[in-house]
Design a protein around this nucleic acid. Sequence first.
DNA 1: ATGAAAGCGCTAACAT
DNA 2: ATGTTAGCGCTTTCAT
Lengths: 346, 346
Amino acid sequence: MARTTISEVAKAAGVSVSTVSRALRGLDKVNPATRKRVEDAAEKLHFSFSKSASSLASGKTMRVGVLLADRISGWFNSHAFEGVYEALSVHGYDVIPYVIWGQDTLDNFFQTLPGNQNVDAVIVFSFDLDDAKKQVLKELTVPVVGLNTPSDDGYDATARIDDRVSMYAPVRLLHSLGHESLAYVEQPETSPFLSTSRIRSQAFVSASRELGYADDKIMTIPAIVYTGMRSQMDVYSGIAAQLVGSPSRPTGVCVENDKVAVALVRELVRVGVRIPEDMSVIGFDDDTRAPILDMTTVHQDPTELGRAAGNKTLALMRGERLDNPYSVVPTSLVLRDTTGPAPTDD
Amino acid sequence: MARTTISEVAKAAGVSVSTVSRALRGLDKVNPATRKRVEDAAEKLHFSFSKSASSLASGKTMRVGVLLADRISGWFNSHAFEGVYEALSVHGYDVIPYVIWGQDTLDNFFQTLPGNQNVDAVIVFSFDLDDAKKQVLKELTVPVVGLNTPSDDGYDATARIDDRVSMYAPVRLLHSLGHESLAYVEQPETSPFLSTSRIRSQAFVSASRELGYADDKIMTIPAIVYTGMRSQMDVYSGIAAQLVGSPSRPTGVCVENDKVAVALVRELVRVGVRIPEDMSVIGFDDDTRAPILDMTTVHQDPTELGRAAGNKTLALMRGERLDNPYSVVPTSLVLRDTTGPAPTDD
DNA sequence: ATGAAAGCGCTAACAT
DNA sequence: ATGTTAGCGCTTTCAT
């Protein structure tokens, strides 16, 4: 199918190129008969618009970029991306992922995308951006919307869950179940740009304090970067060891996300810890893994978040003013079988 | 950051636009001193190329489209997409997903993408395309590569697993474990374009026959489209009922993929079937769910498949001739805890 | 090594 | 309702 241009269609239909343009884009002020002739000619010649040419001439690219702080195959990202796609693709937009692996890809992104209308908008997923980058985003002439960004600052709109509030529910549950010593486990290896890690662990600590836990009853296992040396399993057995061996003997554990929680529960069970009799574990996400282990977790819906972000983006690209640009999607605690009353001392 | 154009940079650097173009693209025949001046000017003005303008002038879009028969959030698709992205993004290509939901999106895709160089290549995931569509693909002037397509026909290159061969391993295992009656479960609700469903179930049947099973010892539970009325759980309890209630009393079950296998195992356990004492179950994929249930399954690596497809695409776009355009990535049977010897009759 | 000029295939006034 | 015209911001011969 050799590239057919609009002028060939015009010739075939016996009209001018502008008429072809109008007819094919469904604009008004085109005689129905003419339109029909044009459409037939286009069909016969297998014509389709060159997006580049349209973009160049119109100034709209019909593309939106999605900035990811982490792999697109992860549960959250793939679903959120899908939500964005659902909202935008039906309106003819291409949705292009840009995965940021490290400082170089970040710099590269900020260098090549911004200036010249290369996208009509950018959506930023769960990013922890420093002020310099935020400044760059602010200076972009296209809408910038955030999805689960740590704050609304610097974004024309955001859709997010409240990580802080969301972490209170599981801590409150553990407290009401009588657990006297708590622990929080961060995802072992994580992207430097991911914002959730930091926020959730901070929220865990403040929630615990507010509920009256002394600092020596609040343990945190941070996201040490295990430098590839150790296998996945070693990582989790290390965490399990810290949990079991800690002088504070935590019996209630919150985990940054279900992926890590599931691996941890399996490891704990392997070394003889009974869940929930000896230890209660609560995840975060309610991803596909959580129900398999009947794990208590905090439910969130990334697809919905993606749709929300996509729709806001759409409105912004149309020049509309949003009456509620910064929206928060609620999460909910899902009670399942990895939580129970604190073990009684013998 | 207002759009800066190449001519503004030219002016600022005191050179012509063509020199700017050469300098910034790292072409040869540019005086180092001149290049430096141009780069400085570009930097100061926050210049970046307009992709649309570059595309239009050069004829290369630096974009490749990925055709998906199903949601991008699924385990296979998200990982395969990631593999493609890894291979192509480092070379400056944008990777754009196109999800095909139904006949209309399919038609729309084939209508808007093809003709005018809107992408430099297209990669097709697990698609069952009719001859007409294949013909359209063939007529595309850009490379078309398949990833887990049912055949190599119509593609300039493909990377895939051999679904047929892959299905033989689990059937052989069940046979060697003494199971005398087998069953195969297709994914309940599936896309009409997904090719794997059909192929795997056919392979299951022929593998079983070759191993000597009579047709009344080979049961297949097809992908009936449960029309939204029933809940997910009802679907699986229906399947479990068919399995348990069948006159052929199958004790060895192969399932189209782990997602379905996991749900099925849980349902079977719920109704009192012991796995693997009463029934052996084998999945397909070895996705994130399989290890959680210690499920025996057929392992495949979609990310690797994606990388392979991406690299072939890259070579093709460069005009290179592949010496091995159609490659098959092996799968492997992973033995875990959902399989065991056939139950002895009492 | 650098510049001039001719498009790439469209859209968007502006005419008519 | 339709045609004319002037770009959009680049790349690419072709000169020099």
